[in-house]
């Protein structure tokens, strides 16, 4: 890894709240209050060009919200998302690979039309013949047959659908791809195929990834840097090997313990106590203190700041 790489994406102090208030009548009649869900608070990270940054965390920690904020599907409540200029000089635009390959392809469209849509919408090819050639080429790139273009999505397996999804994302010739748990709906054996395909494409096309996952072992395979999120905040961010060798936040250690170990399947593991607290009503101080083995009164009262350590890792914990 080179250190002097330029930054492709700079995210600073990103905030997003959702209004989950009960309907107007309920508020008036029953005196219910407006409620806001703080899905993402104060998230900052940067993605190096040509690299892969991963966001990891449990369900509901806000990682998919970050993905949607980055691609522009949601507008941020506060904070800034800045893309570096791409090859053409204009700021990079992000394309997305979605989590559920059964919902991300329109079931009524033929595959060739699904893949051709970016080409047609963005007018990347002039004639219909060129579009069809490009579609066939893209199908080849992701390891499908050109004749598969005439089929409908339901005729494919989950892994094949995810390949179609990747082909569609590649059709718009992006330099930046946001992958929102692209393998979580797939079989373990197929997961590896898709991940290898994505790595290969990264090398061949010089793509930059923002990779979202709840699975640290998948992330280790893919990424240069990893950020661990808990209840809408980044609790630890470090280079991949630093994070695995020396996890500093108790939550990161907990996540690492959940990875099955082939060499020592019977090793002692500490089961985490409790559930993830509701993001509607997050705990005071350090939001992890309800489940943390190290928690003290200080943790309940005061939220730790994200502090950079000597080895380049950033950690938000009073004890790190």
């Amino acid at each position: 890894m080179t250190t002097a790489r330029t930054t492709a994406l700079e995210v600073t102090n990103l905030d997003r709240t959702f209004d989950v208030s009960p309907p107007f009548l309920n508020r008036v009649l029953y005196g219910q209050k407006r409620r806001h869900l703080h899905a993402v608070s104060d998230v900052s990270f940067s993605v190096p060009a040509g690299g892969c940054m991963s966001l990891v965390g449990e369900s509901g920690c806000g990682k998919s919200t970050v993905a949607r904020l980055v691609t522009g599907i949601y507008a941020p409540t506060a904070g800034e998302i800045r893309f570096a200029p791409g090859k053409s000089g204009a700021p990079l635009s992000a394309q997305m690979i979605f989590q559920d390959p059964y919902a991300s392809l329109n079931p009524r469209w033929r595959v060739k039309n699904i893949i051709a849509e970016p080409l047609r919408e963005l007018k990347l090819r002039a004639t219909e013949a060129e579009i069809q050639d490009r579609v066939a080429e893209l199908l080849g790139i992701v390891g499908l047959n050109a004749a598969d273009g005439a089929k409908f999505p339901h005729e494919f397996s989950g892994g094949q659908r995810q390949r179609i999804s990747i082909a569609r994302a590649l059709a718009s010739e992006p330099e930046f791809l946001v992958c929102d748990e692209p393998t979580s709906a797939l079989d373990v054996s197929v997961q590896a195929q898709i991940l290898n395909l994505m790595r290969k494409l990264q090398d061949e096309l010089g793509l930059t990834y923002l990779f979202i996952s709840h699975d640290l072992s998948v992330v280790r395979h893919m990424s240069d840097r990893i950020a661990v999120m808990y209840l809408g905040r980044i609790v630890e961010e470090a280079a991949t090997e630093t994070l695995f060798a020396d996890p500093k936040h108790p939550y990161t250690r907990l996540l690492l313990q959940t990875i099955p170990n082939v060499n020592d399947p019977q090793r002692d593991r500490v089961a985490a106590e409790g559930e993830v607290p509701s993001p509607l009503n997050p705990p005071s101080g350090c939001t992890f203190h309800t489940r943390c083995p190290l928690a003290t009164d200080q943790c309940k009262a005061q939220r730790p700041e994200l502090v950079e350590k000597a080895d380049g890792a950033r950690v938000a914990c009073h004890f790190a």
């Binding site: 691609t71 599907i73 394309q95 991300s104 970016p118 718009s172």
Partner: peptide
């Protein structure tokens, strides 16, 4: 659904 989101991403 996500296919609608994918279309929105393409404007």
């Amino acid at each position: 659904k996500e296919y609608v989101m994918a279309a929105k991403l393409l404007n």
